[in-house]
């Protein structure tokens, strides 16, 4: 068994390890606002660095090495995105931090208010609905919500993925 990674694979492994550090650095740059923009910029940076490395590294190129490096880097980006989005937009985690921050036991209504930092669950619902409406999956007319054809297609896809991943 050959356990040694090729040059592009080594580059991808190093860039994968560097991605969280890059995100930590970008967090210090005030011009880069917003968690979504920061993770997108972080991913773009490592892809560009990988492309530069593939061109600049001396020696012969092997397609399998480059393709494999790309797979490794994409894996790292997906992992970072999953963890980063949990931290940034995770509903359950934010519920926990809101309750812990309160410092004393709260009723369900107080907990919801603490989670929304003064707002209520209506604000949260509108925030999530804005995503669905903005992405063209749901429309609102006369105070009623309805899924669009795109929304129905996504709903079918979600049901299929839930079924095929054992989520029921």
């Amino acid at each position: 068994m050959n356990f040694l990674p090729g040059p592009a694979q080594t580059t991808a492994i190093c860039l994968s390890a560097a991605l969280p550090l890059l995100l930590l650095c970008y967090a210090r740059i005030t011009a880069i606002r917003g968690a979504g923009r920061r993770i997108r910029l972080g991913c773009l940076s490592v892809v560009v660095l990988f492309a530069i490395a593939c061109i600049a590294i001396p020696g012969p190129r092997h397609l399998d090495d480059v393709v494999s490096g790309l797979f490794l880097l994409t894996t790292a980006m997906m992992l970072c995105y999953v963890l980063f989005s949990l931290l940034a937009w995770g509903f359950t985690l934010t519920l926990l931090t809101a309750l812990a921050r309160a410092g004393s036991p709260l009723t369900l209504e107080q907990w919801a208010a603490a989670y929304m930092q003064g707002g209520d669950l209506g604000n949260f619902a509108h925030n999530r609905l804005k995503l669905l409406i903005g992405s063209g999956m749901v429309i609102i007319a006369d105070g009623k919500l309805a899924p669009t054809a795109k929304g129905l297609a996504v709903a079918h896809l979600v049901k299929f993925v839930r079924f095929s991943t054992g989520l029921g």
Partner: peptide
Amino acid sequence: RRAFGIGDTGLYDFGE
């Protein structure tokens, strides 16, 4: 969250 410069609202920021 502080280290990665993430706010603690858990809401999507559509201003991005």
